[in-house]
Structures are given as C-alpha cells and as structure tokens.
Design a protein around this nucleic acid. Structure first.
Length: 808
DNA sequence: ACGTCCCGCCAGGGG
DNA sequence: CCCCTGGCGGGACGT
C-alpha cells in the first residue's frame, strides 16, 4: 500500500548480490538492523543473519509463506527497500510517523465498527490482523491490551479476541472513575505537583519521599485490573495476575483523567503516580523513563480512540507533554444520587443503568456532562478524610498540625467555592456566557450555565449550606492557581484565573501587566493573538475616573466596554483558547450572594447528599480551629488581596454586573458580620471561621479598597497602559505569574508534607494573610529583592504556565 | 538536545 | 516443547 515500488528492481539486484541466501526475503524486521547509510558492513550482515536465525521470526515467516503470496510480495518489496542506499532508501522509506502505533491503531480500529450489533460478534484473529495490517505481532498486542483495558475487546483464547466496540465504554469509564476516586488520585496528583513545585525552589533539597505516607493508605489497588461485571471477561481462565501491566497502566492512566478536574494529565505526573503506587521505590531514573515510554504507547492508542488528545503544558521549566481527556464525560458515579433537575426533566424513568443515566444527562446537557459534577463524589471522600484529620487533631491538640492531603484539598475547595460564588453571582446577573467556538466545549459551557440550581454541583450546595448560589447562577467555579495546580493550570471550562492585583490596579486600571503575567496560550490559537489585541486597545482606552467605591462599577464598565470584535474572536477561539483580555473586579463588590437561603430546597435531597451534608456539618461544627491556633488579637483584620479575575470562557454582558446584589448579613452566622464588611469578606469570613481557620470573632477584610491599600512600589509599571508598556511587559510578565502570597502560604501551610513546618501558629497565620500589594505581589517586577526570579521568603511565584494544544 | 516511540530481544507461561 | 504474550529498554527519528 504505502510502499513505493520504484526502487524495488534496483534493490533487488543489490540485495541479491549481498544476500544471496536471504531466501524468503520476507523478513521485514531483520533488514531493519541494517544501517541504511552503510548497509554493507560485515556487522550489518551479521546482524541480519542473526535475525534471520531467530526462531520466532522464522516460524512466523513460514506461516506467512504458506498463507498468502501477495503479502509475500509486499514483504519482499519491503525487504528490498530496506536495502536501498542512502537517499533513495530514505525517500521510499515510510516515515517513522507512518509507522506509529497511533496510525496502526487507526487502521486496526477501522476494521471494526464502533458499535457492533450485539447479535453478531466480531472476532479478532491476531494473525489476520498482523498480516493485513502488516505489522509485527508485538505491536498488535500493545493495541489490544489497551483496548482490553477499556473492555472494548476481550480475549477469548490464544490469538483470539472478541470485539465489543464502544458499547462498554460508558460502564468502563464509570468504573474506572470510581476506582480512581477510591485511589485518591486527586490527592496524589496534588502531592506530586506540589513536590514538583517545591523542587523548583529547592532542587537538591529535601529528599522528602515521605509523601509515601500520604500515598500509602490507599493502595489497596495494587496491580489489579478493573473488571467489568456485565462484560464477560476472558472465557479462558487467563488470570495471570501478572502480565497485565500495560492493561492496568492503561486503566490507571484513564482514571487519572477522569478524576482530575481539568482533565489534563501530564505524562510526568502520570508516570510518577503509576510508579509510586507499585512500589514506593526510589524514583529510579530509568524506571521512570520506561514508564513514560509505556505511557506513550498507551496514549497513542487512547488518542486513536479519540479519548485523549495530546497537548503541551508549557511552563518555564520547559514544555511538558500532557494529554487532555476528550472522551465522553463521566459523571461522578453516584448510584443513588438524584439530581433534582434530572429527575424532573428526564422523561424516561431513571434506571440505574449507567447508559441510560448518561443518556439522561445527555438530554439535559446537550454536550458532554459538566465538569461541575466531577467534584461531587470525590468531595464526599474528602469530607470523610477531613473528619479523620479532625479527630486526630483533637486527640493530639498540642502536636504539630498535620493535615491530610484530602483536608488540604477540601480547604482548597472551600476557597475555591468562595470564588466561585463570586463568579456565580456575576453570572446570575444576566451574565452572558461566552462560549468557545468548538462545539463540544461550547455546548458544555452552555449546559453548565443554563443548569438549574437543582443540578448545581452538589458540591456547592453541600459545602455552603448557608450560602447558596442564586438559582439561576452559573455553576462555574474558579480555578485557583495553587502552586501545585498551576503546573497544569489550564483554565479549562468554566475556568477563571485568579490573581492578586496590586491595589493600584484595583482602583480601576487595567493592568497591562496582568495580561502578560498570566497568559495561557494555545497553539492552535492564532486566535489568541487576535484576542489579545482588542484587549490591549481596550486597556489603552480605559481611564481611571475616580477612586472610590465605584471601582467596581468601573470594572463593570470595563467589561462592558469589551469590544464586540473581541467577543467574536473569542468565540472563534478553540476550547483551549484562553482569554487573555483583562477584566477584573475587586472581589469585594462581586461576591455573589443574592439571597442566602438556609437549607432551602437545594438541600440534601438524596440520601447520599444528606449524608454529605451531615458530614459537612460535622466538619463545620467542629472546626479544626485547634489546628491553627490564632489569637484573635493577632489577626483582627487581614487584607485579602483583590483578585484579578480573568474570565476565560465566560463573558459578562454589558449591563450585568452593575446590579450585582450584595450579600445580606443575615446570611452569615458570624457575629462579626455586624461590622458589615463587604459581601466578599463576609463570605470569606464565614468560610474561614467555619473551617476553623480563624476564630469567630476575627474578621478578614476582603475588600482592598476599604482597607489601607499598600500601593505598589512601582506604580508606573502598572497603572497605565501605553503601547510601550505592553511591549516590555510582554517579556517580563509573561514569564512569571504571582499568585496571592497569602494564598500560597496558606495552602502550603496546610499541606501534610509541607517542607517548612508551620513554626508557630501565629507566624503561620500571618503568612496566610499577608497584606496584598507590595513587591511580592507585583508580577511585572522582573526580579525580587534578592535579585533572582525566586520568590523570597513568604512569597512564591508561580511560573507562568502555558497550555498549548498541538494537534497533529 | 530532547521528546517520541519504533523495534525487537527474550522471559514466562499457556496449551 | 512450541510459540503466544508482553515486559522492557536501546537507540533511531523528528523537531
């Protein structure tokens, strides 16, 4: 097929000369050993001979010979080609890519229908496939193994498989997801990323392999293969628990996607997790390499299945290969969780069968499911985990704080939720969703936003029983750039980037720098550049008016001012395309709590939900205050930096935010609410207090405008927008992005294996809520006081990450 | 120089 | 014992 015959004749001669005894000439692999450039070396000949002697190959050839002559011809040609000299040879030589596993997989898949009629099963004969596809048998195994891991095929006997197609995919994915959750992969990923991040600043430092402990507890899932009940698996009792590595790896790899929120997994992380799980062995270099290689194999076939897609996460450390899940969305597996809306909207009775469920959700949400659900079940686990932590803590009040990864995550989540509320509110206020051009993504976004409260991520309602998002609010949550997460930050889906803004900016100036700072680009997006422009020009025309509480409104205006073309461009941008335009709001004015309803209808309805809620309550009512003792006097008022919220997939409509309602204090059970802080601070306080991070009486101020505003030391760098500024910042700021220092410190301090042990409570606390502004949070600064790019003491710079999507 | 990953050796073990 | 399976990693190709 793909083998040019041109040089066949020529090569034939040569070949004959050289290898008179190259008999059947049907040995494709062997000739390979001959270095194309120097085919005639004794060495090469020797190699060929040796290869030819291989029993395996010989036997296979024999089979081939009698099987069919046509293929033999091809083989011959192939063989001949191998012997061509230099350029000629090269030209005829199918590019390496043409021999890729991915391509081969495509060919393989092309042979069978995605959804074979259940009546007539199609069988797969490896020999046939091998022959027809013209490949080494070995390669087929690679493919079949991962297909098997997805239950798309199952082995019948030697050399024989049954083709199931994608019929089982939903169940399989569902199952995998569950297992993934059970395995606490999310936590592990966090762990790894965090460590990774730490190493950036402390390369040779702490060999803290102690995360084993955090990993440990949950590896009941050794090397087991996830079976599927319904699917008759291997009639033959081929239960060699052993040789399943690739299959198991494949499954785990998939799990990783299914459980992580931005469904992007880097090979590196995946490899580490897969290794770490087997044995907490020393991260052997070669072992790691091998793992990566295997992952590539798996990834290739998964790619062929269109389940994942290769992307790149670029950060300052370089480009890291990663993959993004593009397969069907898998809802958290909640067998008994009823999504209110679902039950009412779905005409057909909700059976417990996954497929129907999926269909149901599909009907509800035209596109794939929403990621908003992905939190749900995992949250349950987190909560439980937190409970344990709490217990431990209580039993050892004086011992150093040690919080599990899950608790850490939970806290993160809470904060995340907090921000999401802000966003929700904005959305509620007639916010206009801005969807990406890519249909799938678009649909998904739409669905998420039009989603009725009932379907609102359970996580939200359960987490903040007292603070419920407005019914019509969009259910999108913010993606906070935690250092560890930042690695793969991708602001995917209803994603937002949060970043601290120097107060100066908050006053209503478009921070040019912020644009560069936090930039995520896509490769396919030439659109990105385009989108950038409007933003810039917009920024240029933006003029600070007055300085007062109207800042928020100014922000609104700004958003309103977004040029139409910008909108359009964004629409066109691909799903990964991230909006880099600048639209930010002082968090204080945008907190979304319209009417907080205590235990309203959104309350736990299903059993599971009820369970969740109760657990949560427990968690709340027993704050882990002890964890971080903090004299109220120490933290009477803390500044929470304003955030720069960059809408990625969502756009505000011109008139939307102006009317952003304010949270009524009654919603807060906090006594301190009387001080009538702005909504955001109220919410934040509520949250922090409830998780015991701050005493009930303590108040955290979230509105920078109302607080003293430490002005950036380099106001000139940020408070205006000129062409030149754009240029310079382009370089500098594009390199670094600074998360709120307090946020970073805060999160890090909560982490189980935080390198720097929280010295004393107070100190830690102070770190959490360092005042905003200041040099540390000034992103556009080329370097810190120490002259390096490294953050100093309490500040952590997160290297800017780019997400590039490269299709091939 | 590094990311990808093809290629095929060879050990295990099913039949 | 044959030979199917599939772990494994050297090293070539692509960028």
């Amino acid at each position: 097929l793909r083998t040019p015959l041109k040089q066949a004749a020529t090569s034939q001669l040569v070949l004959t000369e050289r290898q008179p005894d190259c008999q059947p000439l049907t040995t494709p692999p062997k000739p390979k050993d001959t270095p194309p450039a120097d085919p005639w070396t004794p060495t090469s000949n020797l190699k060929m001979l040796i290869s030819a002697a291989s029993p395996e190959i010989r036997s296979r050839e024999q089979r081939r010979q009698l099987s069919d002559s046509s293929s033999e011809v091809l083989q011959t040609k192939h063989c001949l080609q191998e012997r061509l000299l230099g350029d000629e040879y090269e030209k005829s030589q199918p590019s390496r890519k043409e021999k890729s596993l991915g391509l081969l997989c495509h060919k393989f898949l092309a042979r069978y229908p995605d959804y074979p009629s259940p009546s007539q099963k199609s069988y797969i004969c490896l020999d046939e496939v091998t022959e027809e596809l013209h490949v080494e048998r070995r390669r087929i195994y690679d493919i079949v193994n991962v297909l098997e891991s997805l239950h798309m095929v199952s082995r019948l006997a030697r050399n024989r498989y049954v083709w199931h197609g994608r019929h089982n995919l939903p169940q399989t994915l569902q199952a995998l997801r569950k297992v993934g959750e059970d395995n606490k992969y999310i936590q592990q990923i966090q762990m790894i990323k965090k460590r990774e991040y730490e190493h950036e600043f402390d390369p040779d430092g702490g060999r803290n392999e102690e995360m084993a402990s955090s990993f440990g507890s949950s590896e009941q899932s050794e090397m087991s293969f996830v079976e599927l009940p319904g699917v008759e698996f291997r009639a033959a009792s081929v239960n060699g628990r052993k040789y399943k590595s690739l299959r198991v790896m494949s499954q785990k790899f998939v799990m990783l996607f299914l459980v992580s929120t931005p469904q992007i997994v880097s090979l590196e992380v995946a490899a580490k997790i897969l290794i770490g799980e087997d044995q907490l062995e020393d991260l052997d270099k070669s072992k790691f390499k091998t793992k990566i290689r295997r992952l590539y194999d798996i990834a290739n076939v998964l790619s062929s299945l269109k389940l994942i897609k290769k992307v790149h996460v670029t950060e300052e450390r370089g480009r890291k290969p990663a993959f993004k899940w593009t397969g069907p969305e898998v809802l958290p597996n909640t067998q008994d969780t009823k999504l209110e809306a679902t039950s009412t909207t779905c005409a057909p009775p909700i059976s417990e069968s996954i497929p129907s469920k999926e269909q149901c959700s599909k009907a509800l949400f035209p596109s794939k499911g929403k990621q908003n659900f992905t939190r749900h079940s995992s949250l349950i686990k987190l909560v439980k985990s937190i409970e344990n932590d709490r217990r431990k803590i209580q039993s050892a009040p004086t011992s150093p704080v040690k919080i599990s990864a899950s608790t850490y995550l939970f806290l993160t989540f809470l904060l995340e939720t907090y921000f999401s509320l802000v966003l929700s509110q904005m959305a509620a206020e007639e916010m206009q969703v801005k969807c990406e051009a890519v249909p799938k993504a678009e649909a998904s976004q739409q669905a998420a936003l039009s989603q009725p409260l009932g379907v609102c991520p359970a996580s939200h309602s359960s987490v903040s029983p007292l603070i419920l998002p407005h019914p019509q609010s969009a259910v999108s949550y913010a993606i906070c750039l935690h250092p560890s997460q930042a690695h793969t930050v991708t602001t995917y889906s209803p994603g937002f980037m949060l970043q601290p803004l120097p107060c100066a900016n908050v006053t209503g100036i478009r921070s040019n720098n912020s644009k560069g700072l936090n930039k995520i680009s896509t490769e396919e997006g030439d659109t990105l550049r385009g989108a950038d422009e409007p933003a810039k020009s917009l920024a240029a025309e933006e003029r600070p008016e007055t300085k007062s509480k109207t800042s928020s409104q100014r922000c609104l205006k700004r958003s309103q001012a977004l040029p139409e073309n910008n909108l359009i461009k964004r629409r066109k941008s691909d799903e990964e395309s991230l909006d880099t335009s600048l639209t930010f709001f002082p968090s204080g004015y945008l907190i979304p709590l319209t009417h907080c309803t205590h235990g309203n209808k959104a309350e736990c309805s299903s059993k599971e939900k009820a369970g969740v809620c109760s657990v949560q309550h427990a968690a709340y009512s027993s704050p882990i205050a002890g964890v971080i003792p903090m004299p109220a006097s120490e933290v009477k008022t803390v500044n929470i930096p304003a955030f720069h919220i960059t809408p990625l997939n969502i756009m505000l409509s011109p008139n939307s935010i102006a009317a952003a309602p304010v949270l009524s204090n009654s919603c807060l059970n906090s006594s301190s609410a009387s001080s009538a802080p702005n909504p955001s601070s109220s919410a934040l306080n509520f949250m922090l207090q409830h998780i015991g991070l701050i005493p009930a009486g303590v108040q955290v101020a979230a509105n920078p405008v109302l607080q003293h505003v430490p002005v950036s030391s380099q106001p000139e760098n940020i408070n205006h927008s000129s062409g030149s500024t754009n240029v310079q910042e382009g370089k500098v700021s594009e390199k670094k992005f600074a998360p709120p220092a307090w946020w970073v410190d805060f999160l890090f301090s909560l982490q189980p294996s935080a390198p720097k042990e929280p010295q004393e409570p107070q100190a830690v606390t102070e770190n959490f809520f360092r005042t905003p502004g200041g040099p540390n949070t000034e992103p556009s600064q080329p370097a810190n006081s120490d002259g390096t790019q490294r953050p100093s003491q309490g500040t952590l710079y997160i290297p800017q990450r780019k997400l590039e999507v490269s299709e091939d």
